[in-house]
Design a protein around this nucleic acid. Structure first.
Lengths: 345, 345
DNA sequence: CTTAGCACTCTCGAGGGGAGAGTGCTAATT
DNA sequence: AATTAGCACTCTCCCCTCGAGAGTGCTAAG
């Protein structure tokens, strides 16, 4: 996995091949390289350089008389040492962060917005997971009367997530009773996690007991179901890619099936990403079968209290990595800001 | 659009053609009909009947020497007067409603569950819109302190929807202040809609004024953004359909693009569906271009107070209408029950 | 080291049967 | 009058071929 050292001209040529292949999706010929990038050498010279890059494992040949195509290693080399600055244009950053500021209203909207923004910025399919903490902690409890014997329990978690649960009460309760119950539980249970709540259940009785039981279950689910709530967008974008076109519809279907299946999603997320880092998995670096022709670009966002979510995109190996990384990184940062704002830091 | 009258044998044959085409996706030949459905007549007889059904506009011919394919009108006839009972099996109903009972916890989960259930039951792509009222009415307000100068406003609407909004306070407020403010506003604003809230803004000042302003905007958005929150699932299912396969990838992409674009979604929903009815739009009955090869099966669900959402599926014209209608109708009923439960009826 | 020239290879699309499937028609049968 | 067997006809689909075109690898000259 160590990357070979290249002469300057080879680097230029590799960069040109990748750039060309990304836009055309066609194997790149020596002649067209010279023409389009105004190289100061002849096609024959380029050919010998291409042959060397192929020996180094950075390029391949679909067949004898076809142009060159980057390998996984070729893309990797590009990302590690050929890629231009990935930051988005300032105007773009402004537009996007403006949209995020307007969407502060509803945390579910953040996720949706993040997914659609990424899809739009990168023209790939995007995936955004709900922030889920290793420890979910209660911040506020409220009991809203719906009916004499029925109440809606609203819980605000650390990190600004809001959960709700409809509860059939064993005994009728008035609005005032529910209100003071919510107050008391908020005061006593502030900062409690699922385990603490479970313990506290036995100390209470009546409606309070019911509420605590429901909440502890809710928190436990929130903690465990790490990737249960996933937003995705831009599937149309990967349908538009020529590599997933007519040739093999099964490939495409398997891929979409993988994305839609929220339970399998956790597997393909890169094991650990550092805060603010962006992780790129190219082609066969993905262990999952339907993604062997794809690349993933993922980032992590999260608060200080261990609340963590993922944002990322899926696309063909042939993608604009600079732009993708820039977009994922930027959106990840915005999401981190949003989560922190709700945390109160 | 008036449906022709058919002799019994013609009805049997039409039914057989549709059933066969639904499962095989191939034009149906007279010979295979006789073979598979053990018809007591010869292929030649069947052929003359087929020719007559074609004259009536119920079947077509891709080309001279191919089998028969149902037309939109053929499917329509099938649905109106040939279709078996659409109710799901009792065991299936039990399983599904059991799942819905368990998911009562979170209204966002209902929608997700409805979408995935429909996708699974019908093996088509499903669409579920959030229930949105012509009039959204406030039921409960809560202000949760995040920070000295920052609060999370949680609003419970009629219909059990929960909205949240992060607010930067002009002046710092303590937890107790926020709490009593929430109580007071809940008491005074209970039952208010966006317009009422907007009027009340000027009567308040300080944090209360900020909260009311935010809430009125929130409610206005909730009312207007009728189909803003849409859940869909099972896109993989329509990718698996042979009619959207290799032939024309553009078709498929346009279709998915249409589904993903939440703003265009409202257009394709059938104008008015009665409570408990299921509306079927076959092929060209959809005015939208990318859906000319598709059928939609949609139902409406909602509460007594005018809160309305849609559940439905999209698939190829060649779909199992009986099952689709049964599934959509059943899931719609379950959703109605859930909404009503939160309303307190 | 670079480059012109050239032979070689491979894909892709068009064109050409041939097999197969299925119809429509006609005449015979019930 | 309805049904059916027989048969010619049509159309698709697949396979094959073949030529054009694109691009490489090699070699020898600059």
């Amino acid at each position: 996995m160590s990357l070979p050292e290249l002469a300057d001209r080879q680097r230029d040529i590799l960069r040109a091949v990748i750039r060309e292949f990304i836009t055309t999706a066609q194997p790149v010929a020596s002649g067209s390289l010279v023409r389009r990038y105004a190289l100061p050498v002849s096609p024959a010279t380029v050919r010998s350089e291409l042959a060397e890059l192929e020996d180094l494992g950075l390029l391949t040949h679909p067949h004898t008389s076809a142009g060159r195509v980057p390998t996984d290693l070729g893309y990797r080399y590009f990302i590690e040492s050929l890629m231009p600055d990935t930051a988005l244009q300032p105007e773009e950053q402004l537009t996007v962060s403006h949209q995020f500021q307007q969407a502060q209203q509803d945390s579910a909207q953040w996720l949706r917005l993040a997914a659609s923004t990424l899809a739009r910025l990168t023209a790939e399919a995007s995936i955004v997971t709900q922030p889920a903490g290793t420890k979910s902690v209660l911040k506020h409890i409220d009991a809203v009367p719906i009916h004499e014997r029925r109440a809606l329990i609203v819980a605000v978690l650390d990190g600004g997530a809001v959960r709700q649960q409809l509860l059939d009460l064993d005994q009728p309760a008035t609005a005032d009773e529910l209100r003071s119950l919510g107050q008391r539980l908020t005061d006593t249970m502030h900062g409690a996690d699922a385990a603490t709540l479970a313990k506290a259940v036995d100390l209470e009785h009546g409606a309070a007991r019911q509420i605590l039981r429901a909440l502890s279950r809710l928190l436990a689910e929130t903690e465990s179901a790490r990737a249960s709530d996933v937003y995705y967008d831009g599937i149309q974008n990967i349908l538009a890619q020529p590599e997933f076109g007519a040739s093999d519809p099964t490939r495409l279907r398997d891929m979409v099936a993988l994305l839609e299946d929220r339970t399998r999603l956790a597997d393909l997320l890169p094991p650990i990403i550092g805060e603010g880092e962006v992780h790129v998995a190219i082609g066969a670096e993905n262990r999952v079968e339907p993604l062997l022709d794809c690349s993933l670009v993922f980032g992590r966002y999260g608060g200080t209290s261990g609340v963590v979510g993922y944002v990322g995109i899926v696309g063909p190996r042939r993608m604009d990595y600079a732009r993708s990384i820039g977009a994922v990184s930027f959106v990840g940062r915005l999401m981190t800001d949003l989560v922190r704002a709700v945390e109160g830091n």
